[in-house]
């Protein structure tokens, strides 16, 4: 029996193990890209301001956008609410929604809002030009702040969708989370 053949087979198999281990990690970005392309998981789109302003507005049509707000209460002592719970917009029209966030504690805290759109089918057609959820937000003790999201609903939104919900959950920023739990 050729020892060489055995070594060659073994090396190929080791390589396969390494490749599959890498593949497991590669699945993470693949999964995210897949969700973005298909709009699964309520991942919303982003659009540049200049582009959004020149979009044709479909004035024939109205879409109701509802706002849902949550705070991860276990970790974050904040209150968070939308000023208006729902608005009616035309597809293609750039609109604003304002949220009020308050830090109820006596220390400065960093938080991060995670958006999600329902129904998932609609999330592909919901684009934001500006959002407080793009970056982490730091609130001073007892500070109250208004936060803005500017969005546009794509005119290609399927006709059967008349209402969509934009939901935000504020979490304690992860790096802060790790520090306090250590």
């Amino acid at each position: 029996m050729a020892r060489k053949d055995i070594n060659l087979t073994t090396k190929k198999l080791y390589l396969l193990v390494v490749v599959m281990f890498g593949f497991g990690f590669a699945l993470v970005p693949i999964y995210n890209v897949f969700c973005e392309v298909t709009g699964l998981n309520g991942k919303t789109g982003e659009i540049a301001v200049e582009k959004a302003e020149v979009l044709a507005v479909d004035i024939e049509r109205y879409v109701t956008v509802e706002f849902d707000t949550n705070v991860n209460q276990a970790t974050l002592p904040w209150s968070f609410a939308a000023k208006k719970f729902k608005i009616r917009v035309h597809p293609g029209e750039v609109s604003d929604a304002v949220f009020v966030v308050k830090n109820k504690s006596n220390r400065s805290i960093k938080g991060q809002a995670i958006p999600s759109v329902a129904p998932a089918q609609a999330s592909l057609f919901f684009n934001k030009t500006e959002c407080f959820c793009f970056t982490q937000q730091t609130l001073a003790p007892y500070e109250e702040r208004e936060m803005l999201v500017r969005f546009v609903v794509d005119t290609k939104l399927p006709k059967k969708i008349e209402t969509m919900t934009l939901s935000y959950t504020f979490f304690l920023s992860t790096d802060e989370n790790k520090i306090t739990s250590l």
């Binding site: 599959m20 990690f25 993470v28």
Partner: peptide, 21 residues
């Protein structure tokens, strides 16, 4: 050989989620 490394990767991600931010 094809499945276990993916599992090893997934639990490693759990580990880094918990301890390495």
């Amino acid at each position: 050989i094809a499945a276990l490394p993916v599992f090893a990767g997934a639990v490693t991600m759990l580990l880094t989620d918990q301890y390495f931010g």
